[in-house]
Amino acid sequence: MAVKKLSKDKVGEALKELMKFRLVAPAKSDDVVIFKQISDPAEAYLDYGNSAVPPKKMVFPQTETLFRFVTGEPELKEKNVEEEGQTVIFGMRPCDARAMSIVDKLFDWDFDDPYYQKRRAMTTYVGMACTEPPSVNCFCTSVGGSPFSTEGLDVMLTDMGDYYAVQALNEKGEKLTETIASQLEDGGDEKKIEEMAAAAAGKIKRSIKTDGISEKIPTLWDSDVWKKVSASCLGCGTCTFLCPTCHCFDIQDEVEEMGEGRRCRMWDSCMFSEYTLHASGHNPRPSRKERTRNRVSHKYSYFPSKFDDIACVGCGRCINMCPVNIDILDILEQVVEA
């Protein structure tokens, strides 16, 4: 399909038309950019680096009800995801979109997760190419992505200065561009996009060689390297909660009123001490060393050995946000050397 143009002064109108769906876009809360449902085009903040929390939370919410129960009633009321309606995530970064297609592999693996899959199918992903890398710690090109990667996206926008180039990438994307067809103009320049893509990839400063890492990591089970790289870890969940590919969850029952409650699942983090804590009090990962080992191994070894894909998209959030500057690239370098 030909590349269309969306003039920047028409973005507001286009967003307004998209509001017949549940429209999710980056918005500012003080100085923090987060993805949230917007009800006014002015809320959208498209000139952003990257959001603090990845937009995966729109498909895999931090807390979601699975079903409700009432004591004495044999029937459970199951959550109907369809009620949430069609969703459009507008302006997400290519790495975050790639992350969704990686997480997909997990959620339709041995068990088809209906909540995730329904929501995934009901969501249209509109990407925003990175003409400039959003942070110094971007390394998407090292793990199979790129600043203009279209994997996992339905529509791609590219900032061309005074307009956005709009590319529909599949049927779902074409359907979406049809709803805003009246705002679009012909004449997008595909060649220029390709040039920009090459230029943007060249601006990524950090990199890592991933060859052989997934085979190497299991051989280091007892290595001292883990003690070394985890020494400064505080054990918080920043790196995992803000990771676009982390997908661990916990399931808990919450009683709301006498005899009434809900079963819900919420994000969990392998960096928390409660994560693997057994009811007996035994913890097979008793210290930060084992937890760090697990986080790195899961992303760079276990996941690739099962699904042929590194569970890291190189967005750099865990590096940027870590309070004590623990750096996944630094860890991997030490792993390679160990």
Binding site: S29, D30, Q62, L234, G235, C236, G237, F241, L242
Partner: peptide, 16 residues
């Protein structure tokens, strides 16, 4: 309310 509602409960504040 605005500040609290964006908290991701990563417990970084507690652990640091």
């Amino acid at each position: 309310e605005e500040k609290f509602s964006r908290c991701a409960r990563c417990y970084a504040c507690r652990n640091a």
